Amino acid sequence: MDDTLEEAISNIKLRLRDFSAPKPDAPDLVWGTEGQRISIERYQFPIPNLLLFILHGVCGFSLGWRGEKMHWCVPFAYKGINCTIAFEKFGLRLYIDKLKNEINPKEVLGKLEKAIGSAEKHILSALAQQQITAGNITTEVSRFPQATNRMTAAMRGFRVPWPGSPQSTPKPTSASSWASARRTSAKAYSVRRAAA
């Protein structure tokens, strides 16, 4: 392993020093009655699998039992108190042991947020740059109009004109020019779709 990667991993583990693997006799907080469920706001962790990367990939905590309508769950102990983070059908949930509820959920989630920020900066950005340099990048285009429109809107700022298509228009400054630019973009998109 690269020295900078090892240093980044040790830095993340240092940030998460209060986190440890759960005890073997720890109760099942998700499926049992011992867990207090706390919903995690979507904006706090917009990419839930980064939590899985931190807890399972970097810290090495084992995965919990994956039940119905659950993508993954990772049990852990925070300052000796059993917890579990689960990515379920309706979002992320933090489960804390009801009997020993002496910790602040905001503290747990705040430390995880900081660890993810460190991982994005020191591990994932370098990995992304390597993949881009190697050409291992794929963009998805859906055949469904709603998804295509959403993708087009998301990538509008990154548009590079296709050969033979109208040049991209300068960024509009007024409401009427926004409407004009939208029509121009739609025409250019339909021309590209017809050519493809």
Rank of each mutant, 00 (worst) to 15 (best):
D25K: 08
R66V: 10
K79E: 11
S118P: 05
L92V: 12
A21F: 03
W162Q: 15
F45T: 01
K89T: 13
K89S: 15
T133G: 06
E120V: 08
T33P: 00
P27Y: 03
M70R: 02
F45N: 00
N82M: 13
A134S: 15
I96N: 02
I54V: 15
I123L: 15
S10V: 06
P22I: 05
K100M: 10
K23W: 12
V141Q: 10
P22K: 01
R42E: 13
M70N: 00
F45M: 03
M1S: 05
Q129L: 08
F53C: 04
K111V: 04
N11Q: 11
A26R: 04
K13C: 13
N82E: 15
D3L: 13
T169G: 06
K89V: 08
A181Y: 01
E113P: 00
W65R: 05
R17S: 15
P27N: 06
I132A: 09
A196C: 10
Q36I: 06
L92Q: 13
K121C: 12
A153T: 12
A179K: 12
R192I: 14
A153S: 14
G110Q: 05
W65D: 04
S168Q: 11
I137M: 09
W65E: 04
E107A: 12
G157P: 03
E7R: 08
F144S: 09
A195C: 07
C59F: 04
E6C: 07
A119Q: 04
A194P: 01
Y189Q: 11
Q130R: 15
A188K: 03
I38P: 00
T148S: 10
D25H: 07
H56P: 02
K171W: 04
R159N: 02
A86D: 05
V191L: 15
A195L: 10
S190I: 05
K13T: 09
F45L: 01
C83G: 03
R150D: 08
V141Y: 13
S39L: 05
F158R: 12
K23F: 12
S168D: 09
G60E: 04
G135C: 08
G117W: 07
W72I: 03
R42N: 09
A195Y: 08
P166V: 09
R193M: 10
P48G: 01
S39F: 05
G91H: 13
R183M: 09
S20E: 07
L63F: 00
R66Q: 06
M155V: 07
A128K: 11
C73E: 00
V74H: 00
V141R: 12
A126Y: 10
F90K: 14
L51Y: 02
L29H: 05
G57H: 01
A188Q: 03
I123S: 01
T4N: 07
L51C: 07
E41M: 03
L112R: 02
T152E: 05
I103E: 13
D18S: 08
V30S: 00
V141K: 10
E140C: 14
A134D: 10
S39A: 08
Y95E: 11
G110S: 09
T139F: 15
L99W: 11
M1D: 06
K100D: 10
S125K: 14
R183T: 09
M70V: 02
T138Y: 11
N101I: 13
A126S: 13
D25C: 02
I116Y: 04
Q146R: 06
P161F: 07
S180E: 09
P75T: 01
K79R: 14
D18R: 07
E6V: 08
T148N: 08
Q44H: 02
T33H: 06
P27K: 03
W65A: 06
E140S: 14
K121W: 08
I116D: 04
F19Q: 03
